[in-house]
Write a protein that binds this DNA or RNA. Sequence first.
RNA 1: GCGGUCUUAGCUCAGCUGGUUAGAGCGUCACGUUGACAUCGUGAAGGCCAGUGGUUCGAGUCCACUAGACCGCACCA
Length: 901
Amino acid sequence: MQREFDRQYDPSRIERQWYEHWLRLNLFSCPDETDKPRYSILMPPPNVTGVLTMGHVLNNTIQDLYIRYHRKKGKVACWFPGLDHAGIATQSKVEAELYRTEGKTRWDLGREEFLRRVWQWKEQYGGIILEQLRSLGVSCDWNRTLFTMDPGASNAVREVFIRLFDAGLIYRGKRIINWSPTLQSALSDEEVLYREVEDTLYTLKYYCEGSTTDYLPIATVRPETIFGDVAVAVHPDDERYRHLVGTRVRVPLTDRYVPVIADSYVDPAFGTGCLKITPAHDPNDFEIGMRHHLPVLVSINPDGKLNEVAGRYAGMDRFEARRRIVEDLRAQELIVSEMPYKHNVGFSERSGEPIEPYYSDQWFVHMQPLAQPALEAVLQGQIRFFPEHWVKTYEHWMRNIRDWCISRQLWWGHRIPVYYAPDGRFTAARSEEEARARLELGPDVPLWQDEDSLDTWFSSWLWMLTTMGWLHDGKTEDTPVLRTYLPTDLLVTGPDIIFFWVARMIMASLYFRGVIPFRDVYFTSIIRDDKGRKMSKSLGNSPDPLQLIGKYGADAVRYTVLYLAPVGQDVRITVDPVTQDAPQMELGRNFANKLWNAARFLALKADEAQVGAERSPTLAEEELSLSDRWIRSRLHATIRLVEEHLSRYRINEYVRTLYDFFWHDYCDWYIELLKIELQRTEYTELRQRRVRFALSIFEDALGLLHPLMPFITEEIWHRLGLRDRTESLCTSLLPSYNPSWEQPTLEQQMEILKQIIEQYRMLKATAGLKPSERPVSYYRAENHALELLECHAALVAELARIDVPTPYTPSGKPAGALTAFVRDTELFLVVGEHIIDRERERLQAEYERLQRLLAQTRSRLANEQFLQRAKPEIVENERAKEAAFVEALAKVEQSLRYLTQ
RNA sequence: GCGGUCUUAGCUCAGCUGGUUAGAGCGUCACGUUGACAUCGUGAAGGCCAGUGGUUCGAGUCCACUAGACCGCACCA
């Protein structure tokens, strides 16, 4: 039976086919209820507007790794996928398109028609990213895909709003909020990014009433806000100004007089010690204004333009107005000084322009009561963070939590379920009828629903509940799915949304269901380019993952990204600015190719020996060679390590462990040894059993690798095992660990044998001999090493490409021989006398190295404290080292002496 | 201002609860196509583990400080 195996692995030929096949076999969908152990993960829902980024690749590969691993442990492993409606991002996108194609704004269309267009857009382009994720091989339960604007999720959102409203945890208030003039909407504190900006600090003259010479010097970076001034504040104890408290000063460029007030908020040591109070345009001024019962004078409109309060500057944009006002202030000599000034300015995370603090009616969630239990769940370890240090960040935020502004002046989103009556009263309600009932109004009284919608995160924070059907009809709280899969086991997300999402989910889950939403949270690395910049579309420094998958294969991309991503450390991926290629992916591609070729070799041998799908009979225990036992020991160590690393989320260690096993243990050594052993096995039947043994080791290891590289492992598993297409490595169980097969002593022996081979190779290379030459070799060894060499001389000869080494009994060394050492074993390779100089150099270096080591060891042993306090086995070890170094030194020294003779 | 992370080979990084002679991949150099693999093999070169001090019998590993890189939160005109 011959199988086709190309010399090179081509992922593009098999990946898509396998994915579709898995979907046909329905391997990823889970029942609502089960008696089996279960494991669940919530996918952080990507935006409908999103396309696959390297961040998604990293994040979803980790999730897929864990889901697949636990599925292969025999659990019902359910991964809940979904999509986020992304209010601002999506609305902006559709508005931009509308303006480009039809020259219209959303107000031209009206709310209803505009929303129809957004839905249309969503049907057409939305969710592309979910399709893209499939090319990565993710094994979600696609039947459970939820969109945050789906009716079920929307019902839950409405119900939650009403419940929190009734509980007094949601309130409406006139506040200073972060306003984006571009988006024409409020933003939460978390959506504002602060950046240092070079500005000018203007000190202005506020003339005292009735005086043309006395003034208060008042510094500001925003002279355009002076029209909103309602007072000037000084510190109550400030001797310079105390006499002025209660008098009035004139606002520059106006005829308006405002009072001088005393408030301890003012820092007398900072600046001029005088502060203008503009409650409508500064959060701190607002607080002071409230304390002193001052009016809130709005001078800048929501569109960022000054209004009639600003007199002749009305209608001007805030930045244009600043320039004009400064010119006029200069002209009228109202400026004391202008100084360059660095300070932090808040920018809209979404639209990029400076935030305008804006005084308006908004909806807030009172966070304090929700935060307390959520903080405890993490501090007490019910929820674990990986890496753990994020707990500090979480705690800091939770202890200083501020109320959450949830209203957005957007149309795309969940509309706030609040109704207003003509008399000004309002209530949250499921319908207009219910609102009437709640407000005790007759059926003919007109009601208005609030125009605003809710922050997108107000639906995301319910994700663990809504994905599992909670309140999808507005009533049913307890579903079989919730009982089965909540709390989930793992959440994988970026640390940048710890507040936006992770913290709020914990709060919502505890408040509404009384359970934690997830047990472990793994915060992924941030992917950066080779200059350390975060990858982003605007910088153009992010490769297109689909292009990489197309070029290198999904397995290779998954492999490389996880190999490069240690826990808690950012990942740097070098990207070619022209081709957008990421050459580091070769790491994964080469590994896949290595795997493929190892399988190709096994298939060749299996076909030669006419091994079919059967794996028995295999070698009996007493038939196992040193290399067989060794590779089995390595396999079981690997099984153990895989479990250890994954349970501690040391993902790159897991990757490295498998790399080492496949490449170094299995390919570099085991296959090479197997080749020789097969050559020497005369009986067909024994050869067959030997190949079966080699295959079974390889196949077990494939299972361990499958969660990371699902496509190639499935393909190889089928080819080697000639398995039926209805079987899948996705659902076949992982090999189980057998501690008695992990044999450290045996591994040590093998290690010595490997070193002996390597030393012979080194000698041969030093002599510059051709590979085809087989120089005569000898050894002088004792005990174990002697035994090893006697038993495996032929293997050593084959692998080192030398003549079969034989014991050398005379003292001294063979004529024309180079010498090398493995512990106390001496190895000789007869090469003639032509490279004495290099040999002497090498031995001299070795001599010095050993002397350094010996000195170190001796100084340790000379220390009384060390002998007394260190553990006995450490001391013993040190003594053994001393002896070994002394002996080795003597031998090297002797060799050097022979050389000079 | 508060909190956090990082600094190990030319590059990108591993190195777990302190204890064999500090590792890998890429890159470099030399050799090589022996029936799995040149997307490969063999060998070699390459490291005062950022600096200073401390704890300890013992520090790349723990602590403090310094320098540099970065992140989060807060923010006064």
